[in-house]
Nucleic acid binder design. Structure first.
Lengths: 132, 132
DNA sequence: CTATCTGTTATATATAATATATAACAGATA
DNA sequence: TATCTGTTATATATTATATATAACAGATAG
């Protein structure tokens, strides 16, 4: 687990943990069936309370990224969602990377970029709804 | 001002207001020198407290998007940041839109997408730092 | 000059999200 | 049986968000 948390980030710790694991799955570092550290072990490793790790695990479970088995442990469940993310990165990753590089070259702030993406996504969702 | 807020959104109201105005500037709907409603007027229009609007205005000011003049009002200040955003949308907007459409076609969640973008941005920042 | 419009400041309150701390419970397993 | 799992419960602290009310001070239109 090459995973770290930034205590000064505006992003909640439990989300940082979630994002790190999702990234691991999407990039193939974490594969189907791989065991995850226990909530206590990862908590110790990151210097974080076990409940914070538990919150991240619960979130990942609700999103279908992992499977939690009481008193047995936690395993990566590289299902449809993870597979879709991985395939998207393979087909469109370089295009996305190029667009982001252009944005960075123009000095566009990360928050502004997120806002643009939400805006486009809203538009696309509206178009899709209109079709049905 | 075609601007609305979603009280059930996970995104804070003051950020929704900010994002709406930034979108207006980037799209050209709001142009340099255009006056914005007073904090009280916009608060009334949106059904929101004046301090919430004021918080959004302060944020926009700190980002260089608007200019606030005590007791005179607020004006759009389409400076470098806004210009950069607008130019980026003109040159790369369609490419970004295409990538996002592909992501949506694959059913990729908005949060996962944001996470991917942060990941790429972190990578690109690392590469740029390494060059200098 | 006066009334009214600006943004601003101050104070208080309420709610929700985040994070930690501590303890105990219950199932699986070596 | 001892120890590892996730889970539940309770309590506390901090921060962010949002509202409410009131007052202040500068600009401006009447």
């Amino acid at each position: 687990m090459q995973l770290s948390v930034d205590f000064h980030s505006e992003k909640p710790i439990y989300q940082q943990i979630r994002d790190g694991i999702v990234t691991g799955i999407a990039s193939g570092t974490l594969q189907d069936g791989d065991p995850l550290p226990s909530v206590r072990a990862l908590g110790m490793e990151l210097g974080v309370n076990l409940h914070t790790v538990n919150k991240a695990y619960k979130l990942l479970q609700s999103e279908g990224f992992i499977e939690i088995q009481r008193s047995r442990g936690t395993q990566v469940k590289a299902g449809k969602t993870a597979q879709n993310a991985a395939e998207f990165l393979q087909t469109s990753g370089s295009a996305l990377r190029a667009v982001l590089a252009e944005a960075m070259r123009r000095g566009i702030d990360r928050a502004v970029l997120h806002q643009m993406i939400d805006h486009f996504y809203d538009q696309l969702e509206g178009e899709n709804h209109a079709k049905h």
